[in-house]
Design a protein around this nucleic acid. Structure first.
Length: 812
RNA sequence: GCGCGGAUGGCGGAACCGGUAGACGCGCGGGACUUAGGAUCCCGUGGGGAGACCCGUCCGAGUUCGAGUCUCGGUCCGCGCACCA
């Protein structure tokens, strides 16, 4: 303890200046801008730390709370790393191309180019008020020709590598957005944006062959330092399954043979019919001539695919599949329950041991045969384990072993082999829309699709008045004749430009490569910069992008790595997903009227309070429930910090207990901040501030060291007020350039313990002890407690369990 | 259906390796200061009981000296995928 105060400490004299967040925050931001505090020295960084967050789509409604939450949490991490001595690069940009922006522009009747310029300006201003450590010198927008020039360049690298293909396929057509959608953008058979029922159409489209990387992308997930949840989502999306390809001869139709994929070759003897997906692009090749007309009519009359399977829908095609082992002649049918786009689009049906096939067989009076013993296939499909039956000389073989035996036998006959299938499909990037980067291809009548030469990039999106989709399956760009008609780069004869634009996910699949190199006009990413800064050290974003964006960018990075253009195959060393902010226990939505508007809170409480509350209201990885009252607690906390930092400060060493307290705080906050456990880091800071308040009330003075530590540890969360107080407490420079305090483990260790005494596991007393007191001594003290003596009476303890510094449990 | 998370006071949430359940914040109750305050500060706050104590982390079993934490079985909620053969 310091000596009791003989006289009141010197004070500043007048009343304490109240905390005015408006002037403080404006002043700090001005200072940062003047001093270039947030700029990273990209060429000389010795400890480069690339702190990336998912760039926003700049919606016209402006910054929403989810953006704020994502960025604040990521920014706190960047600021923490910086205080720990890293050279942190924290860039920001705008993902402004795409259907999202275009649909809104159409609704408002404003040209997307104009609208985007405005919404970006608005977003940028809002972001600046959040006190984020962005290096605005490296801002980018995907709609900028200087950016999408390189998006096109990336496409061409993939094209040259044989990873971009123009081919016909069944595509998802949204009749409302009037465009093709990627499989990933179809949710329960509906468009993810407008929820219209999606239709199947056959169009020639550009695909990126991500499936060529399926196995690599799958294998590499094991090495990633990502949230486990995200890795699992990626693995499930890639969806590897092992089984066999089996060839059946066909009779009575144009197609002479068909290959099917199955994960259960052991059930081959139970195959009683074959089914072709109703959406199979060459369905008619499986139909016998006399049935063609009827089947065609049937396909046309099919209702749109529903989320719920309907097994009563199906039709006989009149052709026959010959069983490769038994020679049995199996009927061939078509049904919508089989996917034309997965595997070969045709299956062998084993109704005895597959639930879907069983229901279909029942509905269409097809035979059901038991080939794995263990169930009763007349009443229900049996998908469990067992021995093979009705399988010729393989009867009695275990089903697992049977898989190999059947494949072996097929192999010997040249009728099949072991095979792997992935759920992952190639990435369809063609969009028949206006607001995107034109795909840099020229279609020539003689040379086919020809790439635009690199030196002709960018293929600038022409300015047109009519940007609405035509609905004909072609982009509005098709109407811009003077743009469309160009000579073929190869032969010089008249040719036409590709008029589709690319998917916005291609824009965001490489933006992290551009940030460090934004000032380079003639390369997409400078070699030296890229090798110094990539891969990203920490990536923080929403879990909604756990599959699409993360997988696409991993694919692009990997492809570029194989071309020797980037230093590593994986783009993001660490990834952490943040949770979601809800309000009143429910997702925010306009219809519910519970949307929290950030601007109002920043205006009223200041960005620091707002940031602090966002990070405090729940674990960052989980999100939390916003409460209008809750934020006031954080305002009180910062008011207290403000008062404390203006109190008289004492440069003395203070008491050992005070110093221990400070070191314990550093240890706790450091560890929790590093692990993104912000809510508990902040609660430790609040506790400490209350302890300092007690000191102040008692002694009228605070230790300068305590106040400085509080300010520094708080700086990643509340960057303005801490910087201001850092200056006011006499420190030169910005708090954000200071060195994070370091704790001494010995001092941070607990020195006094409260030892609980239990009798048979129930607490009966406690006593204080010096940390590290020998076990025998703890025992003795515990047994000597009067209360314990009383409870024990004349019973002798049967056993004593002693946990150092914690517990003595007396078992009688 | 499959996969992954959860379930703790009036509310949001803490709790390291199994060791005082409920840190911290909100709300609420009481007090101080105020002309007044929905401002600020102090004290209290899981339930029951006058009390020693008893009960209490979704439910039911189990392991253990000791379980919010581990095991088994179940209920409910959230998220993702979903005719993937």
């Amino acid at each position: 303890m310091t000596s009791t105060q003989a006289s009141p400490p010197a004070t500043t004299g007048g009343p304490l200046e109240p905390y005015d967040h408006r002037s403080v925050e404006a002043r700090r931001r001005r200072r940062w801008e003047e001093a270039g505090t947030n700029r990273a020295d990209l060429d000389h960084a010795t400890r480069p730390f690339y702190n990336l967050m998912m760039f926003p789509y700049p919606s016209a409604e402006g910054l929403h709370i989810g953006n704020c939450y994502a960025f604040t949490g990521a920014d706190a991490h960047g600021r923490y790393r910086r205080l720990r001595g890293d050279d942190v690069f924290e860039p920001m940009g705008f993902d402004a191309f795409g259907i999202h922006s275009e649909n809104y522009a159409i609704k408002m009747g404003e040209h997307p180019a104009l609208m985007t310029r405005r919404t970006i300006a608005n977003f940028r201003e809002q972001l600046k008020h959040l006190g984020l450590m962005f290096d605005w010198d490296h801002e980018l927008s995907t709609t900028d020709p200087e950016y999408y020039r390189w998006t096109q360049w990336i496409f061409l690298r993939l094209f040259d590598a044989g990873l971009a293909e123009h081919r016909e396929g069944a595509v998802n057509w949204c009749p409302s957005c009037l465009t093709v959608l990627a499989d990933e953008q179809v949710i329960d058979g509906r468009c993810e944006r407008c929820e219209s029922r999606v239709e199947k159409r056959f169009l020639k489209q550009w695909f990126l062959r991500i499936t060529a990387y399926a196995q690599q992308l799958l294998d590499a997930t094991a090495e990633l330092d990502w949230s486990e949840k995200t890795k699992v989502a990626q693995r499930n999306w890639i969806g590897r399954s092992e089984g066999a390809n089996i060839r059946f001869d066909l009779e009575g139709c144009a197609q002479g043979e068909v290959t099917v994929f199955t994960t259960r070759p052991d059930t081959l003897f139970g195959a009683t019919f074959a089914v072709v997906g109703a959406d199979h692009p060459r369905l008619l090749d499986f139909v016998s001539p006399d049935r063609a007309a009827e089947v065609e009519a049937w396909v046309r009359a099919l209702p749109p695919a529903d989320a719920e399977p309907d097994f009563s829908v199906g039709i006989r095609l009149g052709s026959v599949a010959v069983h490769p082992l038994t020679g049995a002649r199996l009927p061939v049918l078509a049904a919508p329950y089989v996917l034309g786009a997965y595997g070969t689009g045709v299956i062998m049906a084993v109704p005895g041991h597959d639930e879907r096939d069983w229901h279909f067989a029942r509905a269409h009076a097809l035979p059901i045969v038991e080939v794995i013993a263990g169930g009763d296939v007349t009443n229900a499909p049996y998908e469990g384990s067992g021995n093979m039956v009705n399988s010729g000389d393989l009867d009695g073989t275990g089903w697992q072993e049977g898989k190999g035996r059947v494949v072996e036998r097929l192999g010997a006959l040249g009728r099949g082999e072991a095979a792997v299938q992935y759920r992952l499909r190639d990435w369809l990037i063609s969009r028949q829309r206006y607001w995107g980067p034109p795909i840099p291809i020229i279609h020539c009548p003689t040379d086919g699709p020809v790439r635009v030469p690199d030196e002709d990039l960018p293929v600038v999106l022409p300015e047109v008045d009519e940007f609405r989709p035509l609905g004909t399956g072609t982009s509005p760009l098709a109407a811009v004749e003077e743009w469309v008609n160009v000579p073929c780069p190869k032969c010089g004869k008249p040719a036409r430009r590709e008029t589709d634009v690319s998917d916005t996910f291609l824009d965001s699949a490489w933006y992290f490569l551009r940030y460090p190199s934004t000032e380079f006009a003639d390369v997409p990413f400078d070699r030296e910069r890229t090798w110094r800064w990539l891969p990203v050290d920490m990536y923080i974003g929403g879990h909604e992008h756990a599959v699409l964006h993360l997988l696409y960018s991993r694919f692009v990075m990997r492809a570029l790595f194989d071309l020797g253009l980037v230093p590593e195959p994986e783009p993001y060393r660490r990834f952490r997903a943040h949770g979601m902010i809800i309000a009143g226990g429910a997702k925010m939505s306009k219809t519910k009227g519970n949307v929290v508007n950030p601007d109002g809170y920043i205006e009223r409480y200041g960005a620091d309070t707002f940031r602090l509350y966002l990070l405090y209201l729940g674990p960052y990885s989980e999100g939390g429930d916003w409460s209008d009252n809750g934020i006031r607690g954080m305002a009180r906390f910062l008011d207290r910090v403000w008062r404390l930092a203006q109190a008289p400060l004492d440069d003395g060493a203070g008491s050992p207990a005070q110093e221990r307290r400070r070191h314990r705080l550093i240890a706790a906050v450091d560890e929790r901040t590093a692990e993104l456990r912000y809510n508990t880091a902040i609660s430790a800071l609040i506790e400490f501030s209350k302890a300092l308040e007690q000191d102040l009330n008692k002694q009228g003075v605070l230790r300068r060291e305590d106040v400085a530590t509080l300010i520094q540890l708080l700086a990643p969360f509340a960057p303005h007020i801490t910087d201001e107080l850092w200056e006011r407490t006499g420190h030169p420079g910005s708090v954000h350039d200071s060195a994070y305090p370091v704790h001494d483990p010995e001092l941070a260790a607990v020195d006094a313990a409260v030892v609980v005494v239990q009798v048979n596991g129930t607490k009966r007393g406690e006593f204080k002890a010096v940390a590290g007191t020998p076990l025998e001594e703890l025992q003795a003290v515990a047994l000597a407690l009067p209360r314990i003596q009383e409870i024990l009476g004349d019973r002798t303890p049967r056993r004593l369990v002693v946990v150092p510094d914690r517990i003595v449990n007396i078992v009688v």
